[in-house]
Structure formats: C-alpha cells, structure tokens
C-alpha cells in the first residue's frame, strides 16, 4: 500500500488567456508522503494547487485526486481533502470552539464526535483555556496551528497547504512542521507549497517549478546529489536561474 498513488497528474495545462501558468505538468503523489511543491513566486505552484483542490479547472490534462476524476467527481474529492491557505482562514469574530463547530458542521461531523475530537485537539494544542476566546485575540502562531488542525479535523485523505508558513518566525515554523509530521504519520498525505528552502528539506519528495514547468522532482537527498549541491537553496538557485 505504501506505493499507492493518491494524486495522479498527466499533461496538466492551465492557461489564462495567452499566459501559460501550468505547462504540461506530469507527476504522482504517493499515499502518506509529504510532497513539497516548490517554486519562486509566480512559478505556477498555487495555480496547480488550486486545480487539485477544485477551486480552479484545468485547460487540459488528466487529474485524479484521491482516486476521483477532477472534472466529473469534484463533490467526492471535496469530502476527502483538507485545505489551508496562507491567510489561515479562521473567522476572527468567532471563538476557537465556534470555528471548530462550524468546520465540523459543514463537513457533516456529528456533534457527539465533534465534542470528543475538539477536547482532544485543544488539549494537544494546549489551547483548552482559550476555547471561548475570539480568534482575533490569539497570537499568530496559535491561529496557524488551529487553522491547520481545523483543515484536517474531518480526517481527509490529503491536506493541501498553500504557503502555510508565510510571515511566521523560524521557531514557530519549526513547530508547525512538527504538526505536519504528526498528521503524515497518521497516514494523511500532505501536499505543501512553499518558497522556504529549509522547509524543502523536511519533505519526503519535492518538485521544483520554474516558469510553469516542473524542472526537477525527487527526494531532497537525491536532488542534492544530482545537482552537486550542499543544500536545497543551491539546488533551487541552479534550477531557477
């Protein structure tokens, strides 16, 4: 089961007018892995991620997410994925508990099950005392952790993270990756876009995009070997040049 493909992308093309944001992408993501999707700003990584989430439809190409076709089975895909963007996307005027209730509600989780999971989650995040506080008053790091936990609250098969650590300090970022590892160890596939190269090291495999094309796709160790580089930073600079 380890080598099960959970996302398959073949010849994915996305055009905005005459501009080609995704130029013939082909790649697979395996079940349970942390898949890093790297690229400079404007390389087309967010566009590809939005297509995989069903927020945007491709111009052409074949895409399957969690075994479902992106054109015909969007509703089934939506039940099996989680999503978190760089904006964290919690409702600031709702309390911690109310946000959890809302997300549990729209994913159809029963109140009983929600209460159990909510208690466990808040304990784990050490936020039990803040459960009735408004999101607006929480520190950024807490918001980020909570937004991620909410995105996987319904136990999706895949969680998509769009630059989840943007604008956060290195220590908080490191802690956030602990959360990602934990989720991955529970068998949830993590698909993450980032432009922090230190984060690329944490991924099982990374793909590096430049100008709409995937230029490299392998594990960080292999990439470093191939490009004869000390770290991912150097790999990236060689590719994106």
């Amino acid at each position: 089961m380890e080598n099960d493909k959970i996302i398959t992308v073949q010849n994915l093309v996305k055009k905005f007018g005459s501009f080609t944001a995704n130029d013939n992408l082909t790649f697979d993501v395996y079940r349970g892995e942390i898949f890093g999707f790297l690229g400079a700003n404007g390389a087309g990584k967010t566009t590809a991620l939005r297509i995989l989430c069903g927020l945007s439809s491709p111009t052409s190409g074949e895409v399957k997410v969690a075994g479902f076709d992106i054109y015909r089975e969007t509703e089934k895909i939506k039940k099996n994925i989680g999503y978190m963007s760089q904006k964290f996307s919690l409702y600031e005027d709702l309390t911690v508990s109310e946000n959890i209730q809302f997300y549990a509600g729209i994913y159809g989780i029963s109140p009983k099950k929600r209460k159990e999971k909510e208690a466990l989650l808040l304990q784990k995040l050490e936020m039990t005392g803040a459960r009735h506080k408004l999101i607006a008053g929480l520190p950024l790091g807490w918001k980020q952790k909570l937004a991620f936990s909410v995105a996987v609250f319904h136990d999706p098969k895949i969680v998509f993270l769009d630059e989840p650590t943007g604008g956060v300090d290195p220590v908080t970022r490191r802690k956030f990756w602990d959360l990602i590892y934990e989720v991955a160890s529970n068998g949830i596939t993590v698909f993450v876009t980032t432009h922090y190269m230190d984060e690329a090291e944490y991924c099982d495999r990374v793909s590096i995009m430049d100008a709409g094309k995937i230029e490299a796709l392998d594990s960080p160790a292999n990439l470093k070997k191939t490009y004869n580089a000390k770290n991912m930073d150097e790999v990236f600079i060689q590719i994106a040049r």
């Binding site: 989430c53 069903g54 927020l55 509703e75 939506k78 039940k79 994925i81 999503y83 963007s85 760089q86 904006k87 964290f88 996307s89 919690l90 409702y91 600031e92 997300y103 729209i106 994913y107 159809g108 998509f160």
Partner: peptide
Amino acid sequence: ELGTMEILLVSPLR
C-alpha cells in the same frame, strides 16, 4: 477578502 471563501468552496458545501 479574508480568504475564508476558498475554504467554503473547497468544502463539500455546494
């Protein structure tokens, strides 16, 4: 503006 619309659109809500 807040980005929560994306969350709604990704969710199973029609």
